[in-house]
Structures are given as structure tokens and as C-alpha cells.
Amino acid sequence: MTQTRIHAMPDGREIAYRFTPGQGPALVFLPGYMSDMAGGKATAVFEMAQATGVACLLLDYSGCGESGGDFADGSLTRWKEEILALIEALSIKGAVLIGSSMGGWLMLLAGLALGDKLKGLIGIAPAPDFTEWGIPQMDKALLADGETIYEDNPYGPEPTPTHPGFWAEGQANLLLEGEIALDCPVRLLHGQRDPDVPWDISLQLAEKLRSADVQVTLIKDGDHRLSRDSDIALLLRTVAEMILPRGTAEA
């Protein structure tokens, strides 16, 4: 098992990550909201990368998992900075970003910043713009007034918070309102029984991406997490199809 390491950001943030070197492009797994690199999908991708000699990076955003910091301070821009800083620090020259749920929003924002380093995107129930479509108008009013809102969490005992700073920053980073200027291959996987992110969000995203090489796979009985053995097998096949033909490309 590759050990967890710490990357220190210029402002003192300590970001936990795991990295296995190899041929490229490197796989970079971006977890969802309040999730971390210990999840089943991230672990499966990392183990596949190790088995096939492909470079792979897992990370915990600040305030999540093994990283330092307070989750209440988290924002898309802050977490994007951490992703980009690790890619730079590890001298990754080409990356395929794999984003789960909120990580699917972050993969787009980080991808736009990576330029030619971006070699592909794989979204798992991607949730761009969820601060817009995923929050009732009444709650938006509370957030705009500086209040934190809490929702029932089907995945754990504690309610899920949305902090006003995260919400406001999300509203400043909406992407589905216009063209998303990315031209790399994109694969989107989405369960049609997803109670958290409507599957038509993936269809909207496919339409807004400038790339002509975009494919959406709908899993009729799939839920939001897509973490069953069959779902993970589909994810790994999708990853393999994107990277293995170019396995000798620049890392």
C-alpha cells in the first residue's frame, strides 16, 4: 500500500495525498462533497493504476479526510488550487481527471486551468452547478444571509452542511450557462436512479462541452454512488479505454 504523504501549500494548508508513479497520462481522482481518497472508487482506480504501471494521484481536499483544515473554509477555488498544486509539485505533464459528484464540477474547473496538460475527463454522476439547481430557493435566501443550512445525509449519521461561503463561491463558478471550452475526450457515467444528481445533468454537460469526443453512459438501475462491483468494473473499463491505447504517452 502506497503511504499517504503531505503537501504543504504556501499558506500552510496541509494536503494529504497518495501517488504512484508510472507512465502517463496520470489518473487524478477527485472525490465528491465531504468525501475522501479512501472511498471504493478511488481505491479501485489506484489499484488498477499500480497493476498496469500507470501514474495515479489521490488526494483529500483541505478540511476532508486526512488533510488539515476546517471543512467550513472549503470552496471550489480553494480545492481547485490544491489539485493544481499537487499536479505541479509531482511534475505531472499530462492528466486524466476523474471526478465523482462534486469532483465532476472540480474536474471541469481544474481542467480549464490545466490547458494542454489535460488529456481527458471521466465524470461519475458529475454535479456541476449544484449550488444552483440542487438547493431550494428558500435555502438560497438563508445562505445569502450568511446562514449555514443542513440537509439529511443518507450516507452517514451527521447532517450535510452547506456553508454560505461555499455556496456563494459556487454561484460564481457556474458552468452550464454557456460553452465549456474543453476539447479533450470526455466520458460521463450516471445512474438513472440517482436521487442526488439528476441524470439529465450529464446530458446538459455533454451538450455544453466544446469537445466533439463526449460519450454519456446511463446505468438504468444505478444510484448516486455507483459503487457496486458492476459499477466499479464499468468505471475501470472506461478508464482503461481512455488511457491504455496511449499508454506510452508522456507522463
Results as ranks from 00 to 15, higher is better:
143 L>P: 01
185 P>K: 13
51 A>S: 14
176 L>R: 01
116 D>N: 14
68 G>Q: 01
190 H>W: 04
21 P>R: 10
110 A>P: 04
122 I>R: 12
127 A>G: 06
138 M>S: 15
180 I>G: 10
29 F>C: 01
46 F>W: 02
214 V>M: 02
185 P>V: 06
247 G>H: 11
57 L>T: 07
7 H>C: 11
157 P>G: 05
214 V>N: 01
153 N>K: 05
82 E>I: 02
6 I>H: 08
65 G>V: 07
166 F>K: 07
213 D>V: 03
218 L>H: 00
131 T>E: 15
215 Q>A: 14
182 L>F: 05
176 L>C: 09
1 M>E: 15
116 D>P: 15
68 G>L: 05
46 F>S: 03
54 V>I: 15
79 W>K: 03
237 R>G: 15
66 E>S: 14
16 A>T: 10
55 A>F: 11
115 G>N: 08
240 A>G: 10
107 M>F: 06
169 E>W: 13
225 R>C: 07
64 C>S: 14
235 L>R: 04
54 V>H: 03
168 A>D: 14
59 L>V: 03
56 C>M: 01
42 A>L: 00
39 G>N: 11
53 G>Q: 11
43 T>P: 05
49 A>S: 07
140 K>Y: 09
136 P>I: 13
78 R>T: 13
36 D>A: 13
246 R>S: 12
214 V>H: 01
76 L>P: 05
212 A>D: 15
113 A>W: 10
249 A>P: 00
202 S>A: 09
222 G>L: 00
90 L>D: 06
189 L>W: 10
210 R>T: 13
162 T>E: 12
8 A>Y: 09
183 D>V: 10
184 C>P: 08
53 G>E: 02
246 R>N: 12
1 M>W: 14
250 E>L: 15
16 A>G: 03
144 A>R: 04
107 M>A: 10
24 G>D: 10
122 I>S: 06
219 I>H: 13
11 D>Q: 07
231 D>K: 05
173 N>Y: 05
225 R>A: 13
95 A>R: 10
103 G>Y: 00
69 G>W: 01
185 P>L: 04
186 V>G: 05
250 E>I: 09
149 I>T: 06
29 F>Q: 01
74 G>D: 00
30 L>H: 03
115 G>A: 06
113 A>I: 11
225 R>Q: 06
230 S>I: 12
227 S>V: 02
178 G>F: 05
221 D>W: 04
209 L>I: 02
239 V>Y: 04
147 E>N: 13
51 A>P: 05
97 L>P: 08
43 T>I: 11
80 K>T: 12
156 G>H: 01
18 R>E: 04
75 S>G: 08
175 L>W: 07
79 W>R: 11
